[in-house]
Design a protein around this nucleic acid. Structure first.
Length: 648
RNA sequence: GCCGGUUUAGCUCAGCAGGUAGAGCAGCUGAUUUGUAAUCAGAAGGUCGCGGGUUCGAUUCCUGCAACCGGCACCA
């Protein structure tokens, strides 16, 4: 048998016969290591201790101390033993797939009877028995026919379909946890007793389409989380509890920002407090856009179906548009309109009025555009995914060779704004051509390569999001996460060669001939609604002073201080600060607590001492203790702090 | 839209197996003038999400719908 050479993390290399397993390699180093070994990394690839190694490379033996491989194995083995437990309890259940994910795993099952939340306890108990049994894990490579025959015999149709999707010639690897078997890439641990019985929890049930395809059957998914030890699990559960306190829906109620109700699902009733945030943010964006070379426009809400047919949106999104039909008494035909679901076709209408010259380009046309989309009921989520929203939208009409500079310019524009709003880092995804699209392949080639190279020119290497582009062009997605780690697309930047063609936009070039402009669709915040939701969660409601809905409460300690309280409020308001008086007949402790719970950043407590010395006692949110300052000082300090970042 | 769950006072939640509902906080009234995260007392507050059915009787059981929550699918 031929020899291979394996290099260890310390740089030493040793020769072994080809086909040796990682377990044997560990044994050759030290029996104690072999005992603790759980898997190995071969040239960076995570491999099972039981797999034969056939070629030279660098190898590291993993133990439970190596967090990443340990967690991957633990979670993956948990997925298997959960499936085993489920089939033990309900033998008619069909298994499908069960990948590792986030802090745990999920496994999708097909079963006529739905699982109930109570079932989770029974499954957990069964899993603990499997762990206690310390059943060995073993693995074999099977040929396709044998695997197919096996699953036909077991009546596991989903596994058969999976095999069908594995390319010919690729190994089919089988794993057994005790006598329970699954088709699986591996790697895995060596026995079920290695799993920490006190460090896992089945968290929730959900429906999920087979293969993520809405035309395929809906399966039942069970999610679990697992860690290396009980403390890590507890820390994770505590983290989730803390995150739930930052939920914008909860804070929206507690801070009296907005509400939603059954009569207008997916639409927001902004209360005075919430609207303060909205307006502060919009004022800021308006100034930023002016400084950034945009012109602002405004376009109609109710627009004839004709325009949406021309743009292609009718064909693609009709079912998701609010249709407005008007029966005019004397009209022969009923007119069909749609509430504007997006602004681009309207902006092209403005562009198309009069002749445009190459000298007008790039023309950056911005609108705080109110849009309405009939989103599927299941998609709605607080103020993050709604049916009525306002985009900070703009379309840049430019030439092909301006794409790169404009893209770079926008990325810088967005980065500066995100930094001001507390997001120093964010994810950027590059979404490529979808299956269902407008425009030729050549156009798409051009648009994708222009956008990608411009992004790289701005110093960003985006994650690729294949097939997720808009129907008219590829897009960059700027993604932020909410309190519990869900991703939300906020900013976007899209290259579009299709709409200018469809809506016949043109400009006169240097050569005196008509040319098609390119359209760049871009939004910085995305929508005010979603972005405010993200802001609330990221700051846990404690927004920076310039965005805080209620900035200062001036609270009296005794009613003899009321006059001075009102004087302070007036002086702060004169400086543009959102200040209010609290002269209710309550103890100062009560007032401090109430306004702290409401996340008011600054409380000024006023008693007779302050009245006599013309000072104020300033208390910051989450800061016990207070500071005694002159009225002048406090006014100036707060006024400067409440100045939006772009005006400082 | 799909799967599962939930819906009781302004908010957070009780309400065992069908006999027209309770608490805390908030709000209201009164007392209290108070020094940095809840002062005391009193009165009041609900067509139990909406519609249909079963029943002598439904908040409770069945059913349809709606909204919301967790996922999936969707996201111009």
């Amino acid at each position: 048998m031929s020899q291979i050479s394996l290099t260890f993390p310390d740089g030493n290399a040793r020769d072994y016969p080809a086909g040796i397993t990682a377990a044997e390699v560990a044994e050759s180093i030290a029996p104690s290591l072999a005992k603790r070994a759980i898997s190995a990394s071969l040239d960076g690839k995570h491999i099972d201790l039981a797999w034969p190694i056939t070629s030279s490379g660098t190898i590291a033996i993993n133990t439970m101390k190596d967090e990443a491989p340990a967690l991957e194995l633990i979670r993956h083995d948990f997925a298997h033993i959960m499936a085993r437990a489920v089939q033990k309890l309900w033998p008619d259940t069909k298994v499908t797939i069960g990948p590792v994910r986030d802090f745990g795993w999920f496994y999708d099952f097909d079963r006529a009877e739905p699982f109930t939340p109570e079932d989770l306890g029974a499954i957990e108990a069964e899993m603990k028995w499997i762990i206690a049994a310390r059943d060995p894990v073993r693995t074999e490579v099977w040929d396709r026919d044998r695997a197919i025959a096996y699953y036909e015999d077991q009546n596991e149709p989903f596994k058969l379909e999976l095999i069908d999707r594995i390319p010919e010639g690729e190994d089919l690897r089988m794993y057994w946890h005790g006598d329970w078997q699954d088709l699986c890439r591996g790697p895995h641990l060596q026995n079920t007793g290695q799993l920490p019985a006190d460090a896992f929890k089945l968290t929730h049930l959900a429906g999920a389409y087979w293969l993520g395809d809405a035309t395929r059957p809906m399966l039942q998914r069970i999610y679990g989380v697992a860690f290396r030890n009980r403390d890590d699990l507890k820390a994770h559960l505590t983290m989730l509890e803390e995150a739930a306190k930052r939920d914008h829906r909860k804070l929206g109620r507690e801070m009296d920002l907005f509400h939603m109700q059954e009569e207008a699902p997916g639409q927001i009733f902004w209360h005075p407090n919430g609207w303060n945030i909205y307006v502060a943010l919009q004022d800021y964006m308006r100034r930023r856009q002016r400084a950034g070379g945009y012109v602002e426009v405004n376009t109609p809400q109710v627009v004839s179906r004709k325009l949406w047919e021309e743009s292609g949106h009718w064909e693609n999104y009709q079912d998701h548009m609010f249709i407005v039909e008007v029966d005019e008494e004397h009209a022969k035909t009923k007119t069909v309109n749609a509430l504007k679901p997006m602004n681009c076709p309207c902006h092209v209408q403005i562009f198309n009025v009069g002749l445009k010259s190459y000298r007008d380009l790039p023309l950056r046309m911005a609108e705080f555009g109110s849009c309405n989309r009939y989103e599927p009921s299941g998609a709605l989520h607080g103020i993050m995914r709604v049916r009525g929203f306002t985009q900070d939208d703009a379309h840049i009409f430019c030439t092909e060779n301006q794409i790169e500079a404009e893209t770079k310019r926008f990325i810088e524009f967005l980065s500066a704004i995100y930094r001001d709003l507390g997001f120093d880092s964010f994810r950027v995804k590059f979404a490529t051509r979808p299956e269902h699209r407008a425009g030729s392949d050549e156009t798409w080639d051009k648009a994708e390569s222009a956008l990608l190279s411009a992004t790289r020119a701005a110093g960003i290497e985006p994650e690729i999001n294949p097939g997720e582009g808009a129907f008219y062009g590829p897009k960059l997605e700027f993604v932020l996460t909410d309190a519990i780690g869900r991703d939300w697309q906020c900013g976007t930047h899209q290259v579009d060669f299709v709409l200018p063609e469809r809506l016949d936009a043109s400009y006169i070039g240097e050569d005196g001939a008509k040319h098609r402009p390119v359209m760049l669709h871009r939004a910085t915040l995305g929508s005010f609604e979603r972005f405010i939701g993200i802001l609330i969660e990221n700051f846990a409601g404690k927004l920076p002073l310039w965005l805080a809905p209620r900035q200062v409460v001036v609270a009296s300690i005794v009613s003899d201080a009321d006059d001075y309280v009102h004087e302070i409020v007036a002086q702060l308001q004169a400086k543009g600060i959102r200040a209010e008086a609290d002269t209710r007949n309550e103890k100062i402790n009560y007032k401090v607590r109430e306004h702290s719970v409401a996340k008011v950043p600054v409380i000024l407590a006023i008693g007779m001492k302050e009245v006599e010395t013309r000072t104020v006692s300033m208390r910051r949110l989450d800061n016990q203790g207070s500071q005694n300052l002159s009225l002048e000082e406090v006014t100036n300090q707060l006024a400067s702090e409440a100045t939006p970042p772009d005006l400082r």
